[in-house]
Design a protein around this nucleic acid. Sequence first.
DNA 1: GAATCACATAAGTGTGTGCTTATGTGATTT
DNA 2: AAATCACATAAGCACACACTTATGTGATTC
Lengths: 104, 104
Amino acid sequence: MMENEIFKALADPTRRTIFEKLATGSMNASALRNGMKISQPAMSQHLSVLRNAKLVREERQGRFVNYEVDPEGLTLIARWLGKYRAYWPARIDTLKILLKDMDQ
Amino acid sequence: MMENEIFKALADPTRRTIFEKLATGSMNASALRNGMKISQPAMSQHLSVLRNAKLVREERQGRFVNYEVDPEGLTLIARWLGKYRAYWPARIDTLKILLKDMDQ
DNA sequence: GAATCACATAAGTGTGTGCTTATGTGATTT
DNA sequence: AAATCACATAAGCACACACTTATGTGATTC
């Protein structure tokens, strides 16, 4: 089940930080480390977890590996969230429109 | 930070199952155990984690404790998801309407 | 008010997870 | 082709986590 890998991936604050950085623009693993006080292997391992969770995807560029946000993971979260739309506050009800689209 | 407790809570498959059961209707801790092969203390501990994450809330009813889905947790996830709207596939773009509401 | 019921908390244990250092791999440079 | 660079993988370790059994707590029943 994909959900498990997604939520486990996001359960770690360091990985959420990495994901947030990538959301500001794609970059390689070294660039991601800037200002993060994290070892190179640790970064590599975190990126591996995020990849398996479909939250991030890679693209080889010479000897660099460029990372970017993978929409697939976000879509799966949205889909999970959608299952509980009955419990959303009324002011978020607009989201129903979205979910009708996604159910197909 | 609330996000951490939410994602950690959802990282466990047993807790997601509990949450899903509650989404079908509120019930007490004993009813939740039905067909789940889980000890009473384990259930109690899981519910405690879900409560701290604002995914579930309790309501004392005599010697029973009724549990139900707490919309607050779901809203926080929606808010987190909203930060990355730029990466959603185009067909989910309708959600932008929702987010404009939530930004206030 | 003693027993019972529904649930919470305590304490201990095995497993998972995130980190480290060390080494491997594939691509570029000189 | 040797050295270097960017990144991945291996192995080991400290800690977190989900579980267990045992006990505590607050409400109901007889």
